[in-house]
Design a protein around this nucleic acid. Sequence first.
DNA 1: TCAACTTCAATCAAAATCAATCATAAATAA
DNA 2: TTATTTATGATTGATTTTGATTGAAGTTGA
Lengths: 258, 258
Amino acid sequence: MLTFERHEKILNLLEKQKVAKLAELVEETGASESTIRRDLTLLENDQKLKRIHGGASLLKRKVEEPSMAEKQTQFTNEKKQMGKRAAGLIQDGDCVYIDAGTSTQAMIPYIGAKDVVIVTNGLNIIEESLKQNFRTYVVGGYIKSGTRAFIGKGAVQAISEYRFDKAFIGTNGIDLDFGYSTPDPEEAQIKNLAIKQSNLAYVLADSSKFGDVTFAKFAELEEAGLITTEGDDDDFVKKLKQAAKVEVVKTHDLHSDN
Amino acid sequence: MLTFERHEKILNLLEKQKVAKLAELVEETGASESTIRRDLTLLENDQKLKRIHGGASLLKRKVEEPSMAEKQTQFTNEKKQMGKRAAGLIQDGDCVYIDAGTSTQAMIPYIGAKDVVIVTNGLNIIEESLKQNFRTYVVGGYIKSGTRAFIGKGAVQAISEYRFDKAFIGTNGIDLDFGYSTPDPEEAQIKNLAIKQSNLAYVLADSSKFGDVTFAKFAELEEAGLITTEGDDDDFVKKLKQAAKVEVVKTHDLHSDN
DNA sequence: TCAACTTCAATCAAAATCAATCATAAATAA
DNA sequence: TTATTTATGATTGATTTTGATTGAAGTTGA
């Protein structure tokens, strides 16, 4: 059997039953234990599965990343509220990093501070920032077509040469145990680095992200302040505040007009 | 059996079963192993399939009509002609640098080569390149609000770490003595560096730039090929060709329909 | 903790597959 | 016709994949 076919088979089996023991895979494919082990190592490197002692497990890949076009529609009220709150944290002369994404994009029109320098890895952020005539720096790198974010070596290197007063980061998942996570490991690397390079860091997460775990963790809960809305899941927010040293910045005091 | 027939047969089999072992193909076609190997190499070069150890596999085809992007551009006829001519110089697998600007933007819809990697410092180029699903890298840096080009230290550093097969550069002035020039010294620096880092370099200049001298020179005439139109200033083009070792790529042989 | 057991990574030799070469046969040109 | 190019199949040695073996590392249960 061809290597390629065997890999397909392994992934299919995992698709069905979430975890598979090594013996099962040997049985299923007819290949030897050594071969399966090698396959698992390869597939793990390709982010196709996760190895566990005794076999392999499916990556908890949060379905598909919603495409930019879908997200772009228009900002929800929640996003606008978060945006206002986040923008209010920026002071005159601040140098801020703004992560790619719609949540972070929503904050830009509300930035009132003067002489703000904006650094970003998001194509959408650039547009918005230029509209507002901010001094705008962009990290380089490879453009991911889905989220239109700059990722890769170029981006990493660029960010590592900056220091920010504040960083505003988007997220796909926020979980009491697993912290902040996003589906793409390369994006996670960028987010993580931006937080490290920043004096203060804030994650913007609307209530739909509560309790979600996606593939790649980029920060522990206590590494960044959380800007969110109370929403229906106020209970989760309470737990968050108990569980960690998270500074939860709520938006209940803001009006939803704009 | 004819070579062509054999190739058809191979592709048909792959169409049906996604992967095929070498032995299967030998069986199916009656040709020798060597011949099939050669076929596979050829077909892979033609992007018709993907070779894998032990045989070949289908590659998922992504055919998108470039005509759409073509239609809704509002470029002048001259720019379109130059764009076609420039795009035709790009070959499969090339890594090309495309300068910020509308002249260079106009060439992107006409790029027909496969597996092209595009590196750019232009916001407008990014958009166009993503539409065409090219692998797109962007140099970082400060965004100049006027031309929407990335300039400054970040951009310089990023470019200096790349090597290009071909570079396509826009210009504001082209003069027999002063060479190619542009008003912004920082943009000039970028253009100059991109040319130096590239195996082949082409400047795109429509006839309105003939004889113009602007503030910052970025290259001598002979440092890059010139892609232009004959236009009204054909006389100038003749002088250009006499005066320097400029390779003038004209577009008079192209039709202006599309 | 210990010992019994399982799973693991590293290594090696055999098998399969590969690219490169060469000589022959067919097709094409002179 | 003869020369030249092209396609083919066989052969060779190199590379890749594979399965067995080994000792190390991890797991379990008392």
